[in-house]
């Protein structure tokens, strides 16, 4: 699949935003926090979410009709994602208002939990857009929703740690929760890569054309001699060596470095610099991870053009940490 920057940016940014909303909802549930902190965290989260959503519309041919995407929630994960995303603004903004006016804690907690649930639901819907596509074996994997949720939570935790440090608030157990989540995310990603490497697609040029009845087909003439929409959209191929190098970088920046820095941020002296660096590193690592998520994915359409069966490269680098 050809990585579309707007989508990569959308899924990582809004993933982080929803992650932060989710973590914030738990923090609010856990303890009373200064209004300034909650409001700032909300602002950061909603900004990320909004930027992400807006950026996703850049991918559309008709952004002015984007509202129509809310109508088919009964069948379409994309529609559900839209509905959940918009729905999430309600409790989130209400939470902000409640905190700002000093509403009763029960109200704040209720709004926070609603926000958290909707944030998680939105990320889940996003993941299901991909995971539901049978045409792309790299996405049609039950680990994909888990990954999206874990990576969202991880981004949220890292952001929360940074904000806590910035407000000089105590982190309590948060760094250790973060370490656990980063480790599980890394573990799931590793399992995902393993599974993908093992995966043998049921589809091949033979089944795509039915010519497996006769023997082994190969491309003689493409339908057209120049590129077309399908090749532009699905024809991206990343070299195997390049991909494994990028995987290692992604692991290091998305998991390795944040893991170490999250632990380090437990030491108050290092809290702010470590948390800041962890956010920056994770942002870079996650964009890389998401880029690979696209770049390594193969669509069945490419079979018609002689592309290999939709399984990504076999190399499975070991996760750090």
């Amino acid at each position: 699949m050809t990585p579309a920057f707007s989508i990569i940016f959308f899924t990582t940014a809004s993933g982080a935003g929803y992650g932060l909303l989710f973590v914030l909802s738990l923090l609010v549930f856990d303890r009373a926090l200064p209004a300034a902190f909650v409001l700032t965290a909300l602002a950061v989260a909603l900004t990320l979410v909004s930027i992400g959503l807006v950026s996703s519309t850049f991918h559309l041919g008709h952004p002015e009709r984007a509202w129509r995407a809310l109508t088919q929630w009964r069948s379409s994960w994309l529609s559900r994602e839209g509905v959940a995303a918009l729905a999430c603004y309600g409790p989130a903004l209400a939470l902000g208002a409640a905190v700002a006016v000093g509403a009763p804690r029960e109200t704040v907690i209720a709004l926070a939990l609603a926000t958290g649930v909707l944030a998680a639901a939105t990320v889940y819907c996003t993941s299901m857009i991909y995971a539901s596509l049978k045409t792309i074996a790299a996405w049609h994997d039950r680990r994909v929703p888990a990954l999206y949720l874990l990576l969202g939570a991880m981004s949220g935790l890292l952001l929360a740690r940074f904000l806590l440090a910035a407000f000089a608030l105590p982190a309590h157990g948060l760094p250790w929760v973060t370490v656990a989540i980063v480790l599980s995310a890394a573990q799931v990603k590793r399992a995902y890569w393993r599974a993908q490497a093992e995966h043998r697609s049921a589809s091949s040029l033979g089944t795509a054309t039915g010519l497996d009845r006769l023997g082994r087909p190969r491309v003689l003439q493409p339908a057209h001699t120049e590129r077309n929409f399908l090749l532009k959209e699905f024809g991206f191929e990343v070299g195997r060596r390049h991909a494994s190098r990028l995987r290692r970088l992604a692991i290091a920046f998305a998991f390795g470095v944040p893991l170490a820095l999250a632990a380090l941020s437990a030491l108050p002296a290092f809290a702010l610099p470590a948390a800041t660096a962890a956010v920056v590193s994770a942002a870079f690592g996650l964009v890389l991870e998401r880029w690979l998520f696209f770049a390594e994915a193969r669509h069945t359409v490419m079979l018609y053009y002689g592309g290999a069966a939709p399984a990504p490269s076999r190399s499975v680098p070991t996760t750090g940490g």
């Binding site: 519309t57 850049f58 559309l60 041919g61 008709h62 952004p63 002015e64 009709r65």
Partner: peptide, 9 residues
């Protein structure tokens, strides 16, 4: 109508 939309983005 399409042209306008393209200009927006």
């Amino acid at each position: 109508r399409h042209v306008a939309a393209q200009e927006v983005i």
